[in-house]
Design a protein around this nucleic acid. Sequence first.
RNA 1: AGCGGGAUAGAGCAGUGGCAGCUCGUCAGCCUCAUAAGUUGAAGGUCGAAGGUUCGAGUCCUUCUCCCGCUACCA
Length: 537
Amino acid sequence: MSISDSQKPAQFSLTTPLYYVNGLPHVGSAYTTMAADALARFYRLRGNDVLLITGTDEHGQKIQRTAEQLHRDPQAHCDEVAEGFQDLWQRLNIHYDRFSRTTSDLHAQIVKEFFLRVWEKGDIYLGQQQGWYCVECEEFKEERDLLSEKRCPIHTNRAVEWRDEQNYFFRLSRYQQALQDHYANSPQFLQPDIRRNEILNFVSQGLQDFSISRVNLDWGIPVPNDPKHTLYVWFDALLGYITALLEPDAEPTLENALKNWWPIDLHLIGKDILRFHGVYWPAMLMSAELPLPKAIFGHGFLTKDGQKMGKSQGNTLDPFDLVDRYGADAVRYYFLKEIAFGRDGDFNETRFIDILNADLANDLGNLLNRTLKMAVKYCEGKVPAIDPQAMPQDWSLVQLAQGAGEKASEAYSVLSFSIACEVALSLVRIGNKFIDEQAPWSRYKAGEIETVNQILYAVLESVRLAAYLLAPIVPNLSTKIYQQLGYSVDFNDLGEPTSLKLLKEHDRWGCLPPRQTFGQPEPIFQKLMAPSLDLEP
RNA sequence: AGCGGGAUAGAGCAGUGGCAGCUCGUCAGCCUCAUAAGUUGAAGGUCGAAGGUUCGAGUCCUUCUCCCGCUACCA
């Protein structure tokens, strides 16, 4: 199963949603993006060519209105918010390859070409959209959802209006069978299973065509053959994934965009937009006769202290504030380790602090620190000069470490970030027990130098392996560990082919080179303090 | 209303027929290499309720309660 060196490295492309720029990013967007970044880092470490796409969706009446309220040009408003997203991604140590914006000129070209392709297929037609319309929501409402006196259930003091307007529609109904066949033939297409079930259920009830244009909308891309209409959401935003694939100097054509990276391996999204990615999008692509993405994963939602977050509830969790107070590694670790990816999860600050201090400071950080300081004293500041292969094979730590790389790799491949972390943490926990049992400090006093060397090597190598396996989640921390062990590696600098090569075998036990000189031992993760609510002097 | 998910220790979770477990937190003993870290042990559970199948049920069946998601245009 080994890949020969002459072959091109396997490619892996993935996307986050293109986030709506109605406001600065919330923690849910950050969650998706952190997961995407961790996965991208995992594949890069494996030696794959990776393309991580994120970006912003910038059209729509809500944006236009928000800009107007701020007495600002809509584009200027979008620029500023998009910059806010990029700023947060930088703070969270996200390494994306493309940032796709739906207001870019390139995008308009791609949208036009795609639209015409579907148009020529006969899947777009002018129809009549009738229904109760809430101006605030910008949505047509089902009559059964309305409150008394035809009031919108969200904007309870506003009555909905009867609208009867011409819109363009996409013939989604035509693709029901093809979609169902695809779901059946590609069980990995919709993940996790619970979301797949929802979609299967939904599609089996029959599909209606959906409208893809609006008439009273200026801020957007005009319908190519009828500029009185403006494209609405899905025939705009979803295509941003394709626009993102254009090489920097390429002509904006579908052919150029799809040349290298299509189809996308994974669309990572929140569960709220699964239908659009799992039903609308593949149907649109089928209509355009393009290959479908390999998989779509809808992750769960976050609550805060068990409560749904929302501006109206006033209990939002600000990702900027979180990362500023605790750092990127801490935030990434909490969300990816403490929440089973795919399920809903909760943020609780006390728990956040407890978990980080226990796992990263006490267990991992302190294990490195105590072992390294012994090695500095007992082994002249170098990795003990022993043969890693000649280690006592009955040591539980060694046995565990030998299987850890593969286990973690399997976990990452199925987006089980939490399990990948547990694999690394189990090495650390067993390492702490092992060092207590073996008590190298006593053995050193008793003159058992050879055994001390073996013990310290085994523990340091386990910490190295744990750091390597955690690198997609906590790259800064892993870098610190590697540097204290004497490497000059930076896990944030993996664009370099040389460093990639260097690390390719590092998921295996026994890499740590004997006699390598250590860096300065110092705590890699300072304990977090709870915010002080103490008002007394 | 229909479909699906969930209810197990103070918190978060694992556990598809055989002694109820893991992590965090709490309390106590041990160690002294270490970031007041580590380690060992303890306390803490009538496994949502009731009934049934079985030698044996957290696990299978039936009924019920509560919570959550989906049931079409929520970026």
